[in-house]
């Protein structure tokens, strides 16, 4: 597999709407739970092994499911498997705010990727839900059309679960960007482990895909903080 398509999809400058999301970091900063490099690292690790693991497994599963292309039947393109993955991911995201974020980012990602890799597959996946497919499903579909294998999709999504909030940290905390890079580098081995476990889980039955959530992220995502202005969507 060429690494170039994977690097393109994983590029944080891909215009998929992620720059306005902090992955719950803004709320964690507001609640005083994250305030320096050390607490940022602990936050990112929790995100990686929780929602990062779950999302990576779903991205890999979607990539696996869709890499053979779609069957075009009498009633149009068959998206039953992708729809099942989307429903399973929806059930793993109890917070309405997080569901909305995930679907919006899925929709935005597909908009960007469809420009580069147009075709019926992404059109069909975009139509899975009126608000857009969940982000990991969209990423897996993007991986499938760009020629990224399921393991690569898992790696990109696992990494994305920490780089998103990490890049918000200098903006929210005035943290030294080099310190953020050091934190990310220190997590590299764990990202790899989580991605490998996610890719392995993706080969199993859909109902057994990981479902790890994080209560405090869910709680913080629902908070409307009186008097406090929020800059990030999530």
């Amino acid at each position: 597999m060429s690494l170039i398509p994977l690097l393109l999809l994983a590029d944080s400058r891909l215009p998929g709407g992620t720059h306005a999301h902090s992955g719950g970091l803004e709320a964690a900063v507001a609640a005083g739970r994250v305030h320096d490099g050390e607490t940022l690292r602990a936050f990112l690790l929790g995100r990686l092994t929780g929602v990062g693991f779950t999302a990576a497994a779903f991205a890999a599963a979607a990539a696996l499911e869709l890499s053979g292309g779609l069957v075009v039947g009498e009633r149009g393109v068959q998206t039953r498997e992708a729809a099942a993955l989307d429903a399973e991911y929806d059930a793993r995201t109890p917070s309405p705010a997080q569901r909305a974020t995930s679907r919006a980012l899925g929709r935005h990602l597909l908009c960007a990727v469809r420009a580069g890799w147009p075709g019926v597959l992404l059109d069909a996946v975009a139509g899975l839900h009126p608000d857009g497919p969940h982000h990991p499903i969209a990423f897996g579909a993007a991986a499938a059309v760009a020629g990224v294998d399921p393991g690569g999709a898992a790696e990109a999504v696992a990494l994305g679960s920490v780089t998103g909030p990490a890049h918000a940290a200098p903006r929210l905390l005035g943290l030294d960007p080099d310190a953020v890079t050091a934190v990310l580098a220190s997590l590299a081995a764990q990202v790899e482990q989580v991605a490998a476990a996610a890719a392995k889980a993706a080969r199993g039955p859909v109902e057994e895909l990981p479902a790890v959530g994080a209560p405090l992220l869910e709680i913080a995502a629902q908070q409307v903080r009186g008097g406090q202005v929020r800059f990030f969507v999530s």
């Binding site: 994250v34 936050f43 995100r47 929780g50 405090l216 992220l217």
Partner: peptide
């Protein structure tokens, strides 16, 4: 890992 931290 990370489960007892600020995202856990």
């Amino acid at each position: 890992p990370g489960s007892l931290g600020p995202a856990g």
